[in-house]
């Protein structure tokens, strides 16, 4: 019984030890989105995106403060928060998933890696499973940069767009992600 107990205790520590490995994170990632229609082009930038990658488990997480998106037109920004994203109710968009196509060891080897991120994307309180392609670049300096481009349909996340402004907002919003990670 005692051996069993010790064994269990030891096994409890294993994930913690694995977790002690190096992780990469940032609080100043850049996410941009574009909506292009013949009526008007809308673009917003967020330079305060948080994200962490854990190479050991392949886990990746993003947290995006919705109010940190900056628009060229301040009224547009107000409407984005008030009428579309309802950012007082849903302050953050996030993604929890895993990076596939890259081994833990490869994070130490400079190069460009094509990866796939699978996970749960939550925007406007609505979570959807996503599978998106991206690139992770390991610089010679050891820095890790991740980029991705994908499209999001507002209606998929319960964001209602009234008929009057429907022609001004693209069916699919192009999202560009550009993250420079530091070792944590």
């Amino acid at each position: 019984m005692k051996t069993l107990k010790n064994l269990l205790l030891l096994s409890t520590l294993i994930p913690m030890m694995a977790g002690a490995q190096e992780r990469y994170g940032t609080r100043s990632g850049h996410i941009t989105f574009f909506s292009e229609t013949p009526m008007e082009n809308i673009e917003a930038h967020n330079h305060k995106v948080s994200s962490v990658i854990d190479p050991a488990t392949g886990a990746i997480q993003f947290a995006v403060l919705v109010k940190a998106f900056e628009f060229e037109k301040s009224l547009m920004q107000e409407h984005f928060n008030e009428n579309y994203m309802e950012s007082n109710t849903f302050p953050k968009a996030d993604l929890k998933g895993t990076v596939e196509g890259m081994s833990a060891a490869q994070y130490k080897v400079p190069g460009v890696y094509a990866v796939t991120v699978k996970g749960d994307l939550t925007i406007h309180g609505v979570t959807r499973k996503v599978v998106e392609k991206g690139t992770i670049t390991v610089e010679k300096s050891g820095a890790v940069v991740a980029t991705s481009e994908f499209k999001v349909k507002p209606e998929d996340h319960g964001i209602a767009i009234p008929g009057v402004v429907r022609p001004n907002i693209a069916e699919h919003i192009l999202v560009k992600v550009n993250m420079s990670y530091d070792k944590l």
Partner: peptide, 10 residues
Amino acid sequence: FAQDDLLDLL
């Protein structure tokens, strides 16, 4: 836990 708290590392 480790996964949920990943962002806490920041």
